[in-house]
Amino acid sequence: MMLVVEGISAYYGRAHILADVGLSVARGEVLALLGRNGAGKSTTLKSIIGLVPPAAGSVRFEEREIASRPSYEIARLGLGYVPEERRIFSELTVLENLEVGRQKPRPGVPEWTPERLFAIFPNLAEMRNRPGGQMSGGEQQMLTIARTLMGNPSLVLLDEPSEGLAPKIVEQMAETLKALKQEGLTLILSEQNLHFARLVADRATIIEKGRIRFTGTMAELMADDDARTAYLTV
């Protein structure tokens, strides 16, 4: 397994957000972390990347323990993070946003340059000198992913990549993620949108009220009506 999360807990102040959360993903695989609003999906991803350091438990990335290390060190090991709120540097141009994400090439991992990214995200190529703040939501979402890829990650965590996007852009996003999988990247995406997850994910883990409720292949999930109605339907 490339990433193994075991028994992590996380708090915001006194509020207990995650309890004994565990998940794992193999190299080259796409894992969907599913759950309703507020179930703990974002916090799980933030715990892995070190933005919300877990209070207990372990996170092993390529056999290395990374729990409670600072996030810049975790990122430098090849773990990319695409935040939910996009968090584009609105004052910086597209090219400058990419520059912030740039890290040294990593052996055995696809190496990204702005030109290679523009091939995958043709929209961005047309606005390379535009400030991030003057882009549409969909374009910003693409830029966030491109920015993270500039760090040449081997595993990318995507927090609700389809949220707030027009249906057409959502399809485009699914194609993009499949293309990244083709490149050999491993992905974990948190999602509320089962339809979107089905388009890209191999396996699924369901979280509900901070606890893991289901783990299996996408096909198993689609066969399990009870799990879907209990934890996913609103």
Binding site: Y72, P83, F89, E91, V100
Partner: peptide
């Protein structure tokens, strides 16, 4: 300039 806007995000990008 990036850190002026969002330091946490800059860290998550490996800086």
């Amino acid at each position: 300039r990036a850190a002026t806007q969002d330091r946490q995000m800059v860290a998550a990008l490996g800086v």
